[in-house]
Every structure is written in structure tokens, then in C-alpha cells.
Design a protein around this nucleic acid. Structure first.
Lengths: 110, 110
DNA sequence: GAGATACTAAAGTTTTTGCTTGACAATAGA
DNA sequence: TCTATTGTCAAGCAAAAACTTTAGTATCTC
């Protein structure tokens, strides 16, 4: 399996683009085909497919082809990774904040 | 105040770069100066300052200059925004999943 | 006040990204 | 079978992003 770091890199990079986030917003309402996904977007189908490849490689989207239509849906794994990264940071900075609070409320502690 | 959409765009774009995430990782352990932040990174100080500007504009970092040294620290607002976006998506796709589950466990429902 | 430190600002270069184009494959429906 | 639909692939291009260079300014320390 690919390293945690690479997976994090891919997921955050994928989320960095507004078009890809728009795709994810639509997919969170339910699975749709590539051309349905492309329709409201002001770009060619080929461009949308490229975005989908990036989303799939970062485990934010899963796709499956049946006949000639590829259906796309949300894949929670990538999201979980991103949330974990943020949470890990928060744990660190909140722990610091707690220590600071303790220091301020108990200034005589040795 | 800037629109929610612009704030989201900035925060996700800022998090998309690995160097900026490395900066955030360091800052979550506590406030540091710009040059301390730059030291382990394989780039010039000027480049780090540019990253910091982006992080500050996206409310992920707050900085304050005292004398000649600028001290940087985590600013939770940007993180909260990102988490909210992800959570909003999850609410949608999990609701769908629940309905699907109900449909599968109670197939005779009219 | 002289030198060292800690940045800042602007311009230029290089790399990456997002997108298009055009040519093509596979499947569905008449 | 022929035609429209749905998607794929690879090459190329323009804009954006990341980074460097150069030339500063402000402040600290001696």
C-alpha cells in the first residue's frame, strides 16, 4: 500500500481545486455518470475526466464502468484521511493551549 | 467580511501545498519565528514568507511582529471552515446511505 | 555608530496545473 | 448495420503557482 504521507498529499492536493470540490459536492448527493457530472461545468468532458482521475487516485471518489457509462460516487476513505490530519494537528495545539491555561490559573505552581 | 465561498477556496488552496502543511505541522506544536520555521525547509526565507502570507490570508495562521521578529501561530478559524465543508458533505452522503439501508432491510414497504 | 540579524518587497525564472483539441474505442439503440 | 452516445488517450498550450535573486529596511547588540 502507498505510504500515509503520499495519500495525505494526494487528498489535500485534490481538494485544492474548486472544480474538483464542485464535483464532490454533486456526488455527495448521490452517484452520477461522467457526462451528467460534466454538464453544468463550463469545460470539456475530457477535462472533467482528468479531474475524476485525480479524485479517484486520492480515494475521494470511486468509479465503476458498466457498459459505456462510468458511474461515480463518493469514497469516504480520502475524507477520513484529511479529517485525521486536521484532528491530529488540533490535538497538539489544544494540548498546548490547555497547558497555557493551567499556567495562567495556577501561577504559583513550582 | 469576505464570502464563505472565497474563504473556503483560500483555505483548501492553502492546504493543498505540502510545504504549507509542513509549516502548519510545526506550528501546531507551538508559535515560532519565521526564520525558525524556514530553517528545516529546503528553500529561501523569502519563499517561506510567501507561503506564510497565503496561510495568513486563509485564516490558518496568525502572525505578529514584535521588534524585528515575526512570530507565527495556528489560527483555528481556517481549520474550522474546512472541517465544516467536509462535514456538510458527509451529512448528505450518509443520509443517502441511511435511506438505502432502510430500503434494503424493509423491502416490502409501500 | 557599526555590524549582524530578521525580515520585506519586487522582479524574473522555472515548474506545475488546468484545459483544449483531435483522433479514437466501445456500446446502445434504431 | 449504421449512427449517436459515452467515454478514453495523448499532445500541446497558456496561466498560475512556487521559488530564486537582488536590493532593500528596521532592529538588536556590541
Amino acid at each position: 500500500m502507498q505510504s500515509y504521507q503520499i495519500a495525505i498529499d494526494r487528498a489535500f492536493h485534490a481538494l485544492g481545486d474548486p472544480t474538483r470540490r464542485a464535483i464532490l459536492e454533486k456526488l455527495s448527493r448521490g452517484p452520477v455518470s461522467v457526462s451528467t457530472l460534466a454538464e453544468p461545468l463550463d469545460m470539456t468532458l475530457a477535462a472533467v475526466v482528468q479531474h475524476l482521475q485525480i479524485l479517484e487516485e486520492s480515494n475521494l471518489v470511486r468509479t465503476e464502468k458498466t457498459g459505456r457509462v462510468r458511474t461515480c460516487q463518493i469514497e469516504p476513505k480520502g475524507f477520513a484521511l484529511v479529517e485525521k490530519w486536521i484532528n491530529d494537528r488540533r490535538i497538539l495545539w489544544e494540548r498546548r493551549f490547555d497547558r497555557l491555561g493551567a499556567l495562567l490559573t495556577e501561577p504559583d505552581e513550582k
